[in-house]
Amino acid sequence: MRPFAYVSAPDVDTAVRAIAEQPGAKLLGGGTNLVDLMRQDVERPTTVVDISSVPLTGVDELPDGGLRIGALVRNSHLAAHPLVRTRFPVLAQALLSGASGQLRNMATVGGNLLQRTRCLYFVDGAAACNKREPGSGCDAIGGFHRGNAVLGTSEHCVATHPSDMAVALAALDAVVEAQSVRGTRRIPLVELHRLPGDTPHLETVLDADELITAVEVPASAVAATSRYRKVRDRASFAFALVSVAAALDVEDGAVSAVRVALGGVAPKPWRAYEAERVLTGAPATEESFRAAAEAELADASGLPGNDFKIELARRTIVATLRQLRVEGGAA
């Protein structure tokens, strides 16, 4: 790890000023991603602004029944929150399926959203990687890419965004609030991350001096019947090969409301709008679920080592919706 200046910020204002004044500064939340990447020489901040004791740790109910979640709320605390468990089970499940108990106690909501890809070549300084070193090439495309993306990729980068939590938030229409010395703005979560195009090193629409202060999840009736299905190589403590965040309401045998988002398959948490369009109003049957999955993945394209994710994603979408139909019916 390279040396850096350490600044401990007691509040948001100090923090945003510090990052504005110090080019090359990075915010430190739980540190579970930043410290790891600094040790691997991928991240090289000259100043580290520690926000881990900034009091953005509330989970507050909004007047409409939605939630405002402070950016420094720990992943474990958010998952255990009664309102999350009852109103947004998909979010609790997504959080709980990520990392380990220890890491969830450290990881913050803001840090989780901005964690970086787990592409094997991104973290290896000996490899060519356009994301780490623009213009150097992409060793993953001709190499190991079993974990990489099949949607939204470019010839320059096929990395996935690894967060589970963000997939649930994408399905829930969450909005991110960011603050800088210039003020505060609100960004729909689905617009926070960019697709790689020919600039894979630019991962979000945030400016380098912006700090995420909160995430808001609007009230949603359909979210009460929601779940997160994560498919992975181990029974626990592994990143998703494919994950599905979904919510489903069925009335008179037809889909009255539905949300679907995918993880593990794209450079960003992937809201499956196409699948939702096909499903809305359609009979809540296996055939519709399959048709929706097919529609969503119509443009997917894999590489030899991750082609399987396309079929896996289809099947996982169907399986998750099927289960929600059963649960919704039982409820």
């Binding site: 739980g30 410290v35 220890q102 890491l103």
Partner: peptide, 13 residues
């Protein structure tokens, strides 16, 4: 009282 992995924690935090 909460468990964490000390390797990814900076002592100063």
């Amino acid at each position: 009282g909460e468990r964490i992995t000390a390797c990814l924690a900076l002592a100063v935090q």
